[in-house]
Write a protein that binds this DNA or RNA. Structure first.
Ligand code: FES
Ligand code: FES
Lengths: 157, 157
DNA sequence: CTATATTGGACTAAAATGGTCCTATATTCA
DNA sequence: TGAATATAGGACCATTTTAGTCCAATATAG
């Protein structure tokens, strides 16, 4: 349930590796060797991640990729946005494509709200947490309203 | 991100409807008419949900389906289990199929732990909540450890 | 026996996913 | 300038998943 794609998992792996190399440039081949993922796949992922702005790239000899922000300020939500796009939790919660059930159902909005809540919580998980996760992550209380000014996270500490 | 399948959304809709009919039996046609989903799809979903034990069925004339538990004790996690199976958040967190990256990566386990945390929080969302959701669901703090004895939810109140 | 329902399964079309590969462009250095 | 090294931006294909429909069998009530 609520699975993320394998590519997103790989992408996380790559980002964690880049975080460990600080701001040094790493070529796709370097990364592939380090994380043990096929080079073409790594290339594809790095391109995607670069397009999203999470990493910066430099071309040419001695070129490569590096994080464009400190790892503390990159969140799990950022990674999902980069690799899976801002897909809504349900099909019908998509902006314009008005679901023909809207009238008779309040369910779509429930899932949508749960999704939003989860998203905010994922913004509180930084690349650092992903690299060396705590014994376990705390339980989310999804039953009381969101505080309006809740921090955009990952800048937590 | 973290999307659920459309069938799961439909399934929720169906369950919410059944909840509104209390313990009266509803045939698949009844349900289809009420929720405005094509009959064959409703039939398929009800079969799946019945197989999972969330609803009970009765055959023959005047047969149909009804919830097998009070709606307060059916959680969002139950619905996902029934309709999407107990899929892990990442591919490699699956039991036996040992990912060949295990050695070099702690990331899979991070996603896995986040998933577990989210799952527990979803167990706290009941069918009632799904039917008439609050203005918004609260943010999940995914950064501090899970309490060992956290309630299996939906039996919240 | 008939009408009504569920049960269990097969089946198809369409879309998403995972993965590879190719050409163009930028950069460095000899 | 020219060669070597990288990224940029695609196209491309195989496989799987998803969504949806349909059919034959079984159970129940009247
Ligand atoms: S199923 Fe689309 S709005 Fe509820
Ligand atoms: S990618 Fe499989 S264990 Fe990390």
């Amino acid at each position: 349930m609520l699975r993320i794609s394998r590519l997103t998992d790989y992408g996380t792996l790559i980002l964690v590796y880049l975080a460990s190399r600080q701001d040094r440039l790493c070529s796709a081949s370097d990364v592939a060797a380090a994380v043990h993922i096929a080079l073409p796949t790594v290339q594809k992922l790095l391109k995607l991640i670069a397009a999203s702005g999470l990493v910066q790239s430099e071309r040419g000899t001695d070129g490569g990729y590096c994080l464009s922000r400190p790892p503390e300020s990159i969140s799990a939500a950022d990674i999902l946005d980069a690799l899976e796009g801002p897909v809504a939790i349900t099909e019908c919660s998509i902006e314009d494509g008005h679901c023909h059930l809207e009238a008779s159902c309040g369910v779509g909005s429930a899932w949508q709200k749960i999704s939003k809540s989860m998203r905010i919580s994922l913004e509180n998980v930084s690349l650092i947490d992903l690299g060396s996760p705590p014994a376990s992550f705390p339980v989310i209380d999804v039953t009381t309203p969101v505080q309006p000014g809740s921090q955009t996270a990952a800048h937590r500490s």
